[in-house]
Every structure is written in C-alpha cells, then in structure tokens.
Simulated scan of single mutants.
Amino acid sequence: MDEQRAAILDVRTGERGSYADWVRLFDEVWEAPRERLERLLALLSDEIVLKAPTRPPVSRGKEAGRRAFLRAFRAFPDLHARSKRWASSGDVLFVEMTFTATIAGEVFSWDSVDRFIFRNGEAIERIAFFQDSTAVARRLRRRPAGWRQLYRLAAG
C-alpha cells in the first residue's frame, strides 16, 4: 500500500490522503468533537469497531459509535483532546493524545493511545489504551457531580 495515499479521509466521498492528513483531520475534530461528530464519523468505516477501557466492551458499526460518542459528550460536555505524536506501520496507525474534560467539577486530563487498523484505506478498528484506565472512574465516583456524569455515560 502506498504510505502517502494510505487513508480515506472521508468515507462519504472516498477522498484519500496520507496518514499525516488523516491525523491532522482527527486532531481538528477533537478540538471540538461535539460540534464535529459527523466529521469524526466520516473518518471511520461504516463497520468500525470501537473499544475503550471506560466503555462497554465493544461498539460495532458507525451508529453504535455515534451513540457511544453522544453518551460521552453528554457526560463530559467539554471533552476535547490533542494529539502529541503519531506513528504508522503498514495498515496500523497509533495516535498518542491527551484528553481533557471537567470531571466531578474539576478539570482533569489523561493520556491515551488510539490504535487504528486500516483496511483498503478505511479505519475499521480503534482500540484506546489509557495510561491509567481507572483514573477517570475514580474521579467520577468521588463526588455527586461525578455520579451524575457516570449515570449519563452509562444510560446515555
């Protein structure tokens, strides 16, 4: 696969670009993900598999992903992220990022690495690896404001 034209930048149009282009768009989305949810989803295959330590085991498909992201945005209205660096090898892309959100009334940041697997240029799987996957849960359980956020995250 040509590394310079490896990724589909918009599954709606089939526009292609490099992994660097894909990461740039991914980063732009995470500056204001609530407002740019459809753009985020356009970076992902319709059959995307999403896994994260703070969520149920797996979200399969774009609609399940949309629901999972909407739950997260309801629980953390100011959630955003910024990538620090990225690397790729063949059909695998790693993006190291820092997420920030108000949790239980306090601004909190945590590091994560998203591993994407691409097939025919489409991002078909994302697994998030948090540096400390229990840190967010501990903060949510500390105070009543966090309990409400935890409920929103679970109930949608």
Rank of each mutant, 00 (worst) to 15 (best):
A145N: 13
A128V: 14
R142G: 09
P144F: 10
A137C: 07
R126Y: 04
N120Q: 15
I124F: 00
E122L: 08
R115T: 15
F130E: 09
A145F: 03
A145D: 09
N120K: 15
R115L: 15
F129I: 14
G146E: 05
Q131I: 10
D132M: 05
R115E: 15
A145P: 01
L140C: 02
L140Q: 01
A135R: 08
R142F: 05
R142H: 09
G121T: 01
R142C: 06
A135F: 07
R141F: 07
R126W: 03
V136I: 11
R143P: 01
V136E: 05
I117Q: 12
A123M: 01
F130D: 11
V136Q: 09
R126C: 12
N120V: 06
R142L: 14
D114T: 13
R126E: 12
F130S: 06
W147C: 11
G121S: 06
R141G: 09
I127S: 09
R115P: 11
G121W: 00
A123S: 03
P144T: 10
R139D: 02
S133L: 08
I117G: 09
R115Q: 15
E122V: 06
V136T: 09
S133D: 12
R115W: 14
R119P: 02
A128L: 13
I117C: 11
F116K: 12
T134G: 07
R138M: 03
F116I: 11
S133P: 10
R115I: 15
F116A: 13
T134V: 08
A137K: 12
W147M: 10
G146L: 06
N120L: 13
G121A: 03
E125Q: 04
R143W: 08
R119F: 05
R126G: 06
A135P: 07
R143T: 05
D132F: 05
R141K: 11
